[in-house]
Design a protein around this nucleic acid. Structure first.
Lengths: 182, 182
DNA sequence: TTTGGCATGTAATCCGTTACATGATTAG
DNA sequence: CTAATCATGTAACGGATTACATGCCAAA
């Protein structure tokens, strides 16, 4: 089974967003879940072709525009497939973290280097927190009353909390690292 | 430039741990930084060969054992290369998060499904927090006085804080999702 | 003696990004 | 007119995992 998570992201976009082109799907993902997900065209188009072969999506040429444009929509089988995947418990991910690797190896370079990295991280976390808080307010207004609002909000809250936690950790790390041993 | 982060992880292991075999490197990484990094043999051996070609590590057959065993150590050029990499500011990573994707798409399945996922996550975060707190105590005792202690501790604290933040978020998310709209 | 851990390596495959190639439409 | 955006797709490459293949040594 190939590209299973990308398949599900594309299927999910079509389930929530209705009929869309490959291009639209990219915009949709970018606009709604870019803080924890992304898909490139290099994934989306092959995945759409494959989903089509599996009858999980259907496509039609768009007659309203004489531009080269295909519109995809999810089929009943596609919705079923999506649910099958949704019920599978996601395994805890263990992503590699380059900053933590640099912290772990920091004894090999001047201490100020890693402190600088941590300080930039704090800045970028603060920026992200601020931005996501704005997004949260916007989404609350725009999607008020929508069935999916609470799920969007839950993912945005995740981004905010993680950014805050990273920033707090970085503060603590700077203290731990700066303190000379007794 | 290929496999740059794996190269640096291997180089870093040799910088901290001294002379080691490919097998040892794997054990070292597993024992010390597995909560945010991992390397498979399928990476380690090709990377060692490549580092050798670049004169960043040197190897010698181990005569003390007549087992098939090569011991690698970092060269001066290797240490330089490592420092060059350490000073580069790590860019904020945006990993894909499957759980968050499932939360975002949760309207497509019964609500209890995603609640269950969040509850399992809380359980696994608690377990990880507990485990890392133990590791922290062990490392504090074992590496007391070591030059690298504070850096190890900083990375462990990151794991603890992130696990706690994830658990707290999951609690909040369950509330958000369970609440019926007014 | 047989199982588990030590030890090295390759091949297949997967999943994903980036670069490339092409061209239409629309807003300024 | 022309730049930005809409739009689709392929090819090359990169980085990592997993499975496979092999075999020694030590302890139970």
């Amino acid at each position: 089974m190939r590209e299973s998570t990308s398949e599900m992201a594309v299927l999910g976009a079509l389930a929530l967003g209705g009929e869309m082109s490959g291009y639209d799907i990219r915009q949709f993902i970018d606009a709604s879940i870019s803080h924890f997900w992304r898909e490139s065209y290099g994934q989306i188009y092959p995945v759409l072709a494959q989903l089509g072969r599996q009858k999980l999506v259907k496509s039609s040429a768009d007659k309203a525009s004489n531009r080269d444009r295909r519109r995809y929509s999810i089929t009943k089988a596609g919705r079923q497939r999506l649910v099958e995947w949704l019920v599978i418990e996601p395994q805890p991910e263990r992503p590699r973290n380059e900053l933590l690797l640099k912290v772990f190896l920091a004894s090999q370079a001047p201490t100020r280097i890693v402190i600088q990295h941590l300080e930039s991280m704090i800045a970028s976390c603060r920026a992200q927190t601020k931005e996501l808080k704005q997004v949260e307010q916007e989404v609350r207004l725009q999607d008020a009353g929508s069935e999916t609002l609470r799920f969007s909000i839950a993912t945005i809250r995740a981004g905010i909390r993680m950014a805050q936690a990273r920033a707090r950790w970085a503060r603590e790390a700077i203290e731990i690292i700066s303190k000379r041993q007794a």
